[in-house]
Simulated assay, not measured.
Amino acid sequence: MKGVLLVNLGSPDSTDPKDVKRYLDEFLMDERVIDKPYLLRAFVVKGIILNTRPKKSAAAYKKIWWEEGSPLIVLSERLQKKVDDLTKVPISLGMRYGNPSIKAGLQELADKGVDEVLVVPLYPQFAMSTTETVLVKAEEVRRKYFPQMHFTNIPAFYNHQDYVRVLTNSIKKELEGKEYDHLLFSYHGVPERHIRKSDITNSHCKIDGQCCSVDSPAHQYCYRHQCYETTRLVVAYLGLDAHQYTTSFQSRLGRDPWIQPYTDATIEKLATEGVKKLAVVTPAFVSDCLETLEEIAMEGKEEFIEAGGDKFYAIPCLNDNDEWVKVLSRWIDEWAMTKTVNA
């Protein structure tokens, strides 16, 4: 019997600093997030970050927390329910970090007799700290607890015409009747070394402004290329000129170089250059979360206004958008009928 496991990033169980600390410990100790040797990673995370960051992060979560709980969890559950209502196979939900866990999601499917699972990381672009860690963790759980199961995973869908169309339509709908000078595509940031580590050619990715536009097998796993390609495809649908949009990357950590340009610096730069009405979309996220609701919609807006901007529009993620639900449900049903994933 077939079934589907949707997997998102995850969230603390509450805004209590203890819960936030527990979540950050699991998240930051992932070797695909902070890809340093274990002892060094433990020293940085447990010896430094977890002694300072939980209270600050807890305060940030409190700003965006809903009565129902974490926005990311609530929105993921809404997506799961809508997809489950439209598809012919059972749909469960798991988080890479926190609850509900991947194990819990697989157990739910196993209890229904499922032995063939389509794992769907809810990330349009591939990255070792998102898609790869989900697939690795799911396989670890399968081997330990559900050896009878067989996995298939959905490929990165950043350039799928259905996804691009849905994303474009959501942007159009959100900006309908609003005047804006510039559209900023802000993606989650990753260290430059992640891009090079994911290069299956071991030579193509130079992060020099040119390699992402030159065809290469490396692009199959190149987060930077896939982000810029998402922007290019959406911009083509929207009919924007080069001066009407920018691509940037947010949420850097530590002193090592991360892919640029940085979102906070870009927002300030656009304001100082005369952009008065800025719209920001975050296509690396399917569900709104701390990085979109607090870092962009709150901090980003404040930075823009302080730098001389006037209007700031934070465009919601796809979340449980009905058009997106239909597309995802169709991909799942196609897999259920043909044993292939066409996303």
Results as ranks from 00 to 15, higher is better:
M1T: 10
G3W: 09
L5V: 04
L5S: 04
G10M: 06
P12V: 02
T15F: 02
T15R: 03
T15C: 11
D16Q: 03
V20S: 05
Y23R: 03
D25Y: 14
D30N: 14
R32W: 09
V33M: 13
L40T: 14
R41G: 14
R41S: 10
A42E: 14
F43R: 09
F43N: 05
L50T: 13
L50H: 12
N51V: 05
T52P: 04
K56T: 12
A59G: 12
A59I: 06
W65I: 00
P71L: 00
I73G: 00
L75W: 00
R78I: 00
L79I: 01
L79G: 03
D84K: 13
I91D: 04
I91L: 07
R96T: 13
K103R: 14
L106A: 02
Q107E: 15
E108A: 12
D111W: 07
Y123I: 06
E139F: 12
V141A: 11
R142P: 08
P155E: 03
F157H: 09
H160M: 01
L167C: 04
S170A: 13
E174G: 02
G177V: 12
E179P: 01
Y180L: 08
S186P: 06
Y187Q: 07
G189N: 08
R193I: 11
S198V: 03
D199T: 09
T201Y: 12
C205S: 13
G209Q: 11
V214Q: 13
Q220R: 11
C222E: 03
R224V: 08
H225L: 00
Y228R: 12
E229I: 01
T230D: 02
T230N: 09
L233C: 04
V234W: 06
L238I: 06
G239I: 04
D241P: 00
A242C: 01
A242F: 05
Q250E: 10
L253F: 15
L253T: 11
P257G: 07
P257A: 10
W258R: 10
P261G: 06
D264K: 13
T266W: 00
A271W: 10
A271L: 10
E273A: 07
K276C: 05
K277W: 07
V280N: 09
T282I: 02
V286E: 06
T292N: 06
L293G: 02
E295N: 08
M298E: 11
E303H: 14
F304R: 08
I305T: 15
D310I: 11
A314L: 04
A314S: 15
P316C: 11
N319A: 02
E323V: 14
K326P: 05
V327M: 13
I332M: 08
K339Y: 02
T340W: 00
V341K: 01
A343E: 01
A343L: 08
